[in-house]
Amino acid sequence: MKNHTANEVQASAITEYFDGIRDAAPVLVAVVPFSILFGAIALDKGLSFAEMLLASLSIYAVASQYVMLDLMGQKLPVWLIVLSVFALNFRHVLYSAAIGRKLSHFTGFEKTIAFFLLVDPQYAAAEARSLIKKLTPAYYFSYAATVYTTWVLTNCIGGLFGKLIENPEIYGLDFILPLYFTALVVGFRSTSGFLWVASGSSVISLLIFFTIGSPWHISIGGLAGLAIAATLSRPEETSHG
């Protein structure tokens, strides 16, 4: 009987691993072109191969890395480059606050690594997963390892062989991430106040996008949605949390 249970535990861990890889697979299609391009552009802009690799291994945030390259090219002061990257990544503060509540059964070391790997699709997939079942380290890290490994390897390919993909937009690849995020958002439609939150966020996001400009629309639009959710909240709704 004991053996049977152990087998079951092992079987479920394997299922979790495969679920993580399966859910990461569509994201790879979107990551690869950006990643190859980053490798190519980084070297084009004067980084050495080792510096490009260091950036991808240690920062692991594709949009910020493009911005960093661009600002480095403009010879801006270091503090301004770092501040821009911080501003661009500010949405991750919200991600880490929200997902941290679902990582309470992770060990301290697992959490340290988990937060490092908290890119947009990772966050979205972890939230979506925790809607249907408990978020396990096996699931979280197999998803993360799939994306991270692909990211680093294809960066190297881009750095070594230049612009392999000439027109990624022909296949609509430049649009996979927005489509993926749209589909993910829909997965949260049963959460309370969803329509109010989503409409509020999109309106404010567009307003900021066309006035103050990118990347502020993400954080400010997102915060507007949070304010709506907080306003609509009634004490009894969350007593089971």
Partner: peptide, 9 residues
């Protein structure tokens, strides 16, 4: 509301 709000924005 973070996923619905931030991903929409």
């Amino acid at each position: 509301a973070v996923p619905a709000a931030v991903l929409t924005a």
